[in-house]
């Protein structure tokens, strides 16, 4: 996961989830998920790189919000850092199932495939990102770079 994403997460922790003014008038209120104490604690644990705690708290939040692709993505990321690759794939794939255009999940699952030596798997998600990112996106660039580095090893 990009350092920028972690920095943004840390900033969110500090500043509060979503600017309050954005709450009004939205089709849904995603900040409500952020107010879930377990979800918030899980994200704080990720910012602190406390992966075990992150998984425990996010799994509590998952019981109340099982269809949240971001939550699944964070679970995948936490498992990946503990080298629980099977669990990481499960959560990343669930995130993509819930939101097939989830750019972050495509990037991170692609990177996870590289960690287990599965270049073809990473390239499948690179292809998906090329379809999604007709307008330039960081996730595509980052996965391209990761694959290029992998090939140079």
């Amino acid at each position: 996961m990009r350092r920028a994403a972690i920095a943004a997460l840390a900033a969110t922790m500090t500043l509060g989830a979503i600017p309050g003014a954005f709450a009004e008038g939205y089709e849904s209120k995603p900040e409500a998920a952020e107010r879930d104490p377990d979800y918030a604690a899980g994200k704080k644990a990720i910012a602190d790189k406390n992966w075990g705690e992150a998984i425990a708290r996010l799994m509590q939040a998952e019981k109340r919000d099982p269809d949240n692709p971001d939550l699944q993505n964070w679970l995948g990321y936490s498992h990946r850092n503990l080298k629980h690759y099977e669990a990481a794939f499960k959560h990343y794939n669930r995130a993509i199932e819930l939101d097939p255009r989830h750019r972050g999940a495509h990037e991170y699952v692609g990177e996870t495939y590289l960690l287990v030596g599965n270049l073809a798997g990473a390239e499948r998600h690179l292809a998906a990102l090329r379809e999604i990112c007709l307008l330039p996106c960081d996730e595509l660039k980052d996965l391209e770079a990761a694959i290029a580095r992998y090939k140079q090893r």
Partner: peptide, 23 residues
């Protein structure tokens, strides 16, 4: 970007349509 950061997928998609059209 603001909509994505707010995790507002629906409206982020609507604005993405507009971005693609303009591009």
């Amino acid at each position: 970007k603001a909509l994505e950061e707010a995790k507002n997928r629906y409206w982020a998609t609507e604005v993405e349509v507009q971005r693609l059209a303009i591009a």
